[in-house]
């Protein structure tokens, strides 16, 4: 019985094996096959929106993989294939949206935030350095001397 959790985890880990299988596309060579795989991994499925065309088992994803395979077989370039999909479904199909004013926030926003964080960090550190360490009041000094031992401490005599 104690093995049940382990088995459940193993079963979950194995799930992708039963998921969307790539149809048996024949490439005859490693290079176009690799090109096909990286292309469909960069394109988003519109039905299961958080999956790429490579992951999705939706009917439309099957059709689009077929379409892309045929376009590759017809000698179209990656750019032509991507343009074909963008024309029909919009920039939404791209996991890497184009850099344009509308998308500046997502492309540059993280760097702006990082820079702002660095500036705040530097500013805070500088301010901290400029501030002298807090001075002891006479009362605190007396107590400190008492704790350190009957004024015999050399440093204690100086102040």
């Amino acid at each position: 019985m104690r093995r049940a959790p382990v088995l459940i985890v193993l079963a979950l880990v194995a799930l992708p094996v039963f998921g969307a299988g790539l149809e048996a596309f024949q490439f005859g060579d490693k290079v176009p096959e690799q090109r096909f795989k990286s292309l469909i991994a960069e394109l988003r499925c519109l039905v299961c929106q958080n999956q790429s065309l490579a992951d999705s088992d939706a009917d439309l994803a099957h059709d689009l993989r077929q379409e892309i395979y045929e376009m590759m077989a017809a000698g179209r370039s990656d750019q032509e294939i991507v343009d074909f999909l963008v024309q029909r479904y919009g920039d939404f199909v791209l996991y890497k949206p184009p850099v344009e004013p509308r998308t500046w926030a997502i492309w540059y926003g993280p760097f702006v935030l990082l820079l702002a964080g660095l500036l705040i960090l530097v500013h805070t550190l500088r301010q901290r350095r400029r501030q002298p360490p807090p001075a002891f009041s006479a009362e605190e000094r007396a107590r400190l001397d008492a704790l350190l031992g009957d004024g015999a401490h050399e440093d204690g005599k100086h102040t």
Binding site: L46, Q49, V86, Q87, R88, Y89, G90, D91, F92
Partner: peptide
């Protein structure tokens, strides 16, 4: 609704 993808058409 993220399923409403504006159509470029």
């Amino acid at each position: 609704d993220p399923h409403r993808v504006p159509s470029p058409l």
